[in-house]
Design a protein around this nucleic acid. Structure first.
Lengths: 139, 139
DNA sequence: GTAACTGCAAAATATTTGCATCCTT
DNA sequence: AAGGATGCAAATATTTTGCAGTTAC
């Protein structure tokens, strides 16, 4: 797993630093999405709040993670699939937000349905955000 | 139109004030969505920034407007359809954000496609956010 | 050694809260 | 008249920027 992380960073021409490794690790160890606050909480005083902002921004630019549209307009990030590239995301999967526990899931196996747009509109990306009760909270 | 606005406010047990009328009017006069900043810009110094925050919050609580999930996680609001009620939105329409001009459209006539969720997940709301080039910018 | 990255301080923005005053009903 | 709404000031929260010191390569 550690090799994997170094690989990802190198592949994107990023130098391997503690904060980047640690943050990337967090994303790999969660099934869902992370907010800035989640990362800050998990990392304690390990690194600066500003470093988190900059790291997340860098990861988004490189196409390592992507932001998730949320109903409450909180800012959340999740790992991109391999197909993603800098500035050109293909994260065509459904996002699910649990109303109960707040966890955000990336449902990678569910394909985005095709939407018929009106005359004159051209689509480059479609995001689907489903809210409800997740598997864990449903039991 | 003015009667209509008063009606909407009264129907929701809100007293009719200048700021509420004006802000509601703005929503009726736009085809898309408005951000706090848009409203502030349009209204000039007519009323306080705080009043805009509170008015938007009130409208959301009453189900007059709803927030729109956006990819850039900016906070935008749009009018709810009549079917919406306080705390229980049925704004099941597609939102379209133009990458070029930034305008957000509510495509009311396009129905939300059904999404097949994994075992154990229960959905209460589905939001679809399409990005691309809008009719205006496409010409 | 050099370019890139980080931490700290501080600025800029965005949002929330308290309270006195004003307006709607 | 009474309750709710607004404006102002200020507290909080969030995000960005500049710069000097540090680290990866």
């Amino acid at each position: 797993m550690i090799e994997n992380i170094n690989e990802i960073l190198k592949k994107n021409q990023l130098s391997v630093t503690d904060s980047r490794r640690k943050i990337l690790e967090m994303f790999q160890h969660t099934s869902g999405a992370l907010a800035h606050a989640d990362i800050e909480k998990q990392s304690g005083t390990l690194f600066d709040r500003v470093t988190i902002y900059r790291t997340l921004q860098t990861f988004v630019e490189k196409g390592i993670i992507h932001t998730i549209p949320t109903i409450d307009n909180s800012v959340k990030y999740a790992l991109c699939k391999d197909a993603c590239q800098a500035g050109h995301h293909h994260d065509n999967h459904v996002h699910f937000m649990c109303d109960e526990c707040g966890t955000t899931y990336c449902l990678n196996n569910i394909s985005i349905p095709q939407v018929q747009l009106p005359e004159g509109f051209r689509s480059t990306q479609t995001d689907v955000v489903v809210s409800g009760i997740c598997k864990n909270c449903n039991d």
